[in-house]
Amino acid sequence: MTVQHSNQAGKLILAGDIGGTKTLLLVAEVTGNQVRVVHEQRFSSAAYSSIVPMVQELMQALSSVENPQRKIDSACFGVAGPINGRFAKLTNLTWSLDADEIAKACEFTNVKLINDFEAVGYGIEALDVHDFVTLQQGHLEAQGPRVVLGAGTGLGVCFLTLCGDHYQVFPSEGGHVDFAPADELESTLLRYLRNIFGHVSYERILSGSGLVAIYEFLLQNNVSQPPLELKQAMQAGDAAAAIAAFALSGKDPLASEALDLFVKIYGAQAGNLALTLLTKGGVYVAGGIAPKIIDRIKSGGFMQTFLDKGRYKQMLSNIPVNVIVNEKVGLLGAALVASRL
């Protein structure tokens, strides 16, 4: 989506995307599904004791670019952690959030907390055609249900159905359903992971740590060792990113096989979710991994297993499938939710 600074009068809101590493805060004017940026700022989450000092710092900076007489109408924060009513606890950060405390300290009338992946679901309506890579055009049913799934640190899933003039997001723990192998290699993978974890969910495979697990399984299955350069890269930093890089560059055949298997299982689970709710409004692939491996996703393995549902292949061929490549979709979703408070 193309967002721009604007002086047009709209509802002035504050949106946040709060994670254990970084927090993005956005002040924007929202009219319908159009989000126009007034001011945006990035913070290191661990450098602050709570969200309140971040917001206060943002508001101080805002006074230099916006009429100080204008007040924030409402605020919404997408939080990387579980939501319990007006409270939230971040999974990878020590501090918690209390919507009422934020409202009081920052003098906001309305404050809402939502899960960060729920915010991604809401953000779809703020995107435009340039924010997607289309895997299958299908036949969009304008008011049909939607599903969003996204592999990153974990595997997020949410469903959307039309409610009045916009889509309502229903959070889900669909990433933790049982992994169902589709062939003998995947059955062997399941046995390997079951020996490690006991219960094997899709998240054990469709995540950064899942890609590492697939690669380690293939190494064991092939009685092999990773190239020294890849082994050092895995030890030095993000192991999943190192495997993906070696796969995409063709430097390691087993890394390439691991990524192909990851993509196939990703497509299969996307097809499972499409069948579960008959998502004729589209399947949307989000998360941090997909945009980084988009060429491998487009190469065919994802859609092959998405469609490989026997008698329901034809029906699935009519469902639009898109990858979201706008990394700020969650922030935009929180902005839309704030505008509706």
Rank of each mutant, 00 (worst) to 15 (best):
His5Thr: 04
Asn7Ala: 12
Asn7Gly: 09
Gln8Val: 12
Leu14Ser: 00
Leu25Arg: 05
Leu25Met: 01
Leu26Phe: 02
Leu26Met: 06
Ala28Ile: 10
Glu29Arg: 15
Val30Thr: 10
Val30Phe: 06
Gly32Gln: 08
Gln34Tyr: 02
His39Val: 06
Tyr48Ser: 08
Ser49Val: 10
Ile51Pro: 02
Ile51Met: 09
Pro53Val: 08
Gln56Cys: 00
Lys71Arg: 14
Ile72Leu: 15
Cys76Ala: 15
Phe77Lys: 03
Val79Thr: 03
Gly81Thr: 13
Asn84Glu: 15
Gly85Asn: 11
Arg86Asp: 13
Phe87Trp: 04
Ala88Pro: 07
Ala88Trp: 11
Lys89Thr: 10
Leu90Tyr: 04
Thr94Lys: 14
Leu97Gln: 00
Asp98Phe: 05
Ala99Thr: 00
Ala99Trp: 04
Glu101Leu: 13
Lys104Cys: 08
Asn115Gln: 03
Asp116Thr: 08
Glu118Ser: 11
Gly121Asp: 05
Tyr122Ala: 08
Tyr122Pro: 00
Asp128Gly: 12
Val129Glu: 15
Thr134Arg: 05
Arg146Thr: 09
Ala151Trp: 09
Thr153Tyr: 06
Gly154Val: 05
Leu155Cys: 03
Gly156Ser: 10
Val157Asn: 13
Phe159Ile: 00
Gly164Ala: 10
Gly164His: 05
Tyr167Val: 07
Tyr167Glu: 08
Tyr167Lys: 01
Gln168Val: 02
Phe170Thr: 15
Glu173Tyr: 12
Asp178Pro: 13
Phe179Gln: 03
Ala180Gly: 00
Ala180Glu: 13
Leu193Trp: 03
Leu193Met: 13
Phe197Tyr: 15
Val200Tyr: 10
Val200Gly: 07
Arg204Asp: 15
Leu206Tyr: 05
Leu206Thr: 11
Ser209Met: 11
Gly210Trp: 09
Gly210Ser: 07
Ala213Phe: 13
Glu216Met: 09
Gln220Thr: 09
Gln225Glu: 14
Leu228Gly: 02
Lys231Cys: 01
Lys231Leu: 13
Ala233His: 10
Ala239Asp: 09
Ala240Asp: 11
Ala244Ser: 10
Phe246Met: 04
Ser249Arg: 09
Ser249Tyr: 02
Asp252Asn: 09
Ala255Leu: 12
Ala255Lys: 04
Leu261Trp: 01
Val263Lys: 02
Ala270Asn: 03
Asn272Trp: 02
Leu273Ala: 03
Ala274Arg: 04
Leu277Tyr: 04
Gly281Tyr: 11
Val283Ile: 15
Val285Glu: 02
Gly288Glu: 12
Ile289Ala: 04
Lys292Tyr: 10
Ile297Pro: 03
Met303Trp: 12
Phe306Gly: 01
Phe306Ser: 02
Tyr312Cys: 08
Ser317Lys: 07
Pro320Ser: 06
Val321Gln: 12
Asn322Phe: 03
Ile324Phe: 00
Gly330Gln: 02
Leu331Pro: 00
Gly333Glu: 07
Ala334Phe: 03
Ala334Ile: 11
Arg340Ala: 07
